[in-house]
Design a protein around this nucleic acid. Structure first.
Length: 406
DNA sequence: TCTGGGGTCCTAGGACCC
DNA sequence: TCTGGGGTCCTAGGACCC
């Protein structure tokens, strides 16, 4: 049966939501009306654009470019910090409103949802529901969304991306050639900056060019990705709206350091603080990890990572850190200036499926109890009060997600 | 010039086994 | 001297998304 799908995408989400929050706090200006961006902190070397106002967009400011570049394009640009606690609240408000239409909602990111609306069988009805959502979000929540209306997720997502803001677009199969094939390939979902130049070299410029290219040629050159891009260009996508929340497959925490660090002892301290955060989130998800991974980025922006599979899955901060520390020592070349360091755990399994190992001695059990006790204290008294790093300098450095702590 | 942080999925090569 | 092929697991790195 033909499915009926909506994609709801918040326009300039972080900027709109910060604007609303500022107005709520009594601000006299609406930053949606001026050239403004939400960006990182340049003094901490994380100065990139996360979201932009329409006025900033008109200057040519683009998401993910440096604030430095944005200022050159747009003199007088105002820069505001992000606030994920606020964003989560607005995201939840949107989700609650959408739940009035269907419970088959996939939260694709903090500002995007797919809705399976297959109960509304007529295209006209589906379009009407899309328009209603667009209007209601604006009047009831105070920000605008684009809504894409189609018969699968890919086409709905492409549709919501057409013209912005505050628009509802359809992209039904009979509209693909007019509305999608005329667009440059860079507009196609999952075609990024590495693939686009390769397609250009093959004289493939528009999504239509790609759709009409022999699938086997693409498969030979790009493998699975080639099949996928051909299918997307032809509007083919049979993936389901994943409305049941999926467990994470990995959990990571990384930081760009305010200054390059070449002292391994210092790197280890930071690694411990990062690991505590990762292990805490792992336990909160009630999961165990079997793979520990350490990532480094040097001053020249060259990334390297080392990982290790553990004999047995763990939730223990101490165990994860012991492995992370060894991985760091194994990969770090003395004297190399490090710009970014990160730790992540992968190959996660549910805690309840944990097997009681014959080798699990009472020492490990004690460690687990200690971790859980510390987690509870953190939740009660705040994250920063208790960490094993015990080093205020390092704690200042790292952005703990205090808002995750209830 | 200065380039975040959180993810997912895929590929390729080496080790190892049958 | 010349030396299979297929499968799985592990690791490092890359591409892409928001």
């Amino acid at each position: 049966m033909e499915r009926q799908i909506l994609h709801v995408d918040v326009n300039n989400a972080f900027l709109s939501w910060t604007a609303l929050d500022m107005l709520k706090q009594g601000s006299k200006i609406d930053i949606r009306e001026i050239p403004a961006v939400i960006g990182g902190d340049e003094s901490k070397r994380s100065g990139i654009v996360l979201a932009k106002s329409m006025k900033a967009k008109e200057c040519g400011v683009r998401t993910a470019e440096t604030i430095y570049q944005a200022r050159i394009k747009c003199p007088g640009l105002k820069v505001f910090p992000s606030n994920f606690k606020v964003y989560r609240q607005y995201s939840n408000q949107l989700y609650q409103l959408l739940l009035e239409y269907t419970d088959k909602i996939e939260r694709f990111s903090i500002d995007e949802c797919f809705l399976d609306m297959t109960q509304y069988l007529m295209n006209d009805t589906l379009l009407h529901k899309g328009k209603e959502i667009n209007q209601r979000v604006k009047t009831e929540l105070g920000f605008t969304v684009n809504v894409g209306v189609a018969h699968n997720k890919l086409l709905a997502k492409m549709a919501s991306d057409f013209t912005k803001p505050d628009k509802v677009h359809t992209l039904f199969e009979n509209e693909i050639s007019d509305k999608m094939w005329t667009l440059p390939i860079s507009e196609l979902f999952m075609l990024g900056k590495r693939t686009v130049p390769k397609l250009y070299n093959m004289q493939i410029r528009t999504i239509g060019d790609l759709a009409k290219t022999d699938k086997r040629i693409l498969q030979n050159k790009f493998g699975k990705h080639g099949i996928m891009m051909w299918e997307y260009a032809n509007g083919i996508d049979d993936t389901e709206v994943k409305y049941v929340k999926e467990k994470p497959k990995g959990i990571g925490n990384s930081i760009t350091l305010p200054e390059d660090i070449s002292d391994i002892k210092k790197l280890e301290e930071i690694l411990l603080a990062l690991t505590e955060q990762v292990a805490y989130r792992l336990r909160k998800e009630k999961m165990m990890a079997r793979v520990v991974n350490v990532q480094l980025r040097n001053k020249d922006f060259v990334d390297a990572s080392h990982q290790r599979k553990l004999i047995q899955a763990t939730t223990s901060t101490k165990e994860i850190y012991r492995n992370a520390k060894e991985l760091l020592e194994q990969m770090y070349r003395k004297g190399t200036p490090i710009r970014l360091i990160g730790v992540r755990v992968d190959d996660l399994t549910d805690e309840k499926e944990m097997q009681i190992s014959l080798f699990q001695d009472s020492n490990e059990e004690k460690q687990e109890k200690l971790d859980k006790t510390i987690d509870k204290l953190k939740e009660k008294y705040g994250y920063n009060l208790i960490t094993r790093a015990g080093n205020m300098e390092v704690e200042d450095l790292i952005q703990f997600r205090k808002d995750d702590v209830k």
